[in-house]
Design a protein around this nucleic acid. Structure first.
Lengths: 147, 147
DNA sequence: ATGCCTGCAAAATCTTTGCAGTAGA
DNA sequence: TCTACTGCAAAGATTTTGCAGGCAT
């Protein structure tokens, strides 16, 4: 499920040194905390969690580090149209899309090979080179249908 | 292609009176101008166009009206992760998804019945009731591949 | 007249940036 | 040591809200 923290730490260290950047205690802590999260978090939510561990940490550091983690391929930005970006671990090999409940926010990750293949077909048809894609299905979950 | 302006005007008038709201000259102008746009516009871009016709129009009115048009089912919000929301005419009967070039922003609308059906299958599988969905494919267009 | 609507400006969010001091390698 | 990194606060960007006056019904 979750990334193995050691793996991502190595990945991040490698990315940083390639870019002539440094591993710092803050970046280590942010990565570790991010990987522990069970849900897709916003930078702000992650900041709130981090403050409990290290009250001196700053907003900007969280934002800057999440950007780095995204560039390193460790995190992935999700946009559900809420006004702020959410992040999930980016395990490229386990790509998936999202089914979000518009009432309670419950969030299911799914993967449908057929949809993936059809997407590639569309892209090819127009001569594009696929870089990324985002498929969000918005609905009402079984619980919310009852209430 | 575009909505027939008269149709949307009637739709909007009807929606407004249902909600005990009023048709105003500003709302008429915003709707008319929005329908004329060939590309997906942000509220800010639309405001810039509107200012040329009516220099007294305010930011807030554009934002408020686009929200109303969305509720009325005439406009549809698109989020390509740019930081601001774009709007397109929402012709529910002609639903489509988007293929966006990450370099030049060129934007192709497409519809793939098979993908649509597979989406419904996923939603049903999890017991959800489908409300909406958004599929964005990001790639590099043929022109940008060459340069 | 009633009360919705408008433009303006201020506020609210979310995110980025400049700066002076701090700390990795 | 050298220069990237940090926290802070200010600045940016987008969108929302409060208000006093205006306009539709």
């Amino acid at each position: 499920m979750n990334h193995n923290t050691k793996d991502t730490h190595n990945l991040f260290s490698q990315y940083l040194s390639e870019q002539n950047l440094r591993m710092t205690t803050q970046r280590e802590l942010i990565l570790k905390t991010f990987c522990k999260q069970k849900k897709h978090v916003t930078a702000e939510q992650l900041y709130e969690v981090l403050k409990k561990v290290d009250p001196t940490i700053g907003h900007a550091t969280v934002y800057r580090t999440m950007k780095l983690l995204t560039e390193a391929g460790i995190a992935r930005e999700l946009n559900f149209g809420e006004g702020s970006v959410r992040y999930e671990p980016d395990t490229s090999k386990e790509h998936h899309d999202h089914l979000v409940c518009v009432k309670c926010g419950e969030n299911i990750e799914f993967l449908d090979e057929e949809i993936e293949n059809l997407q590639k077909r569309v892209v090819t048809k127009y001569g594009y080179e696929l870089v990324d894609h985002s498929l969000n299905l918005y609905g009402i979950c079984p619980k919310c249908q009852k209430s």
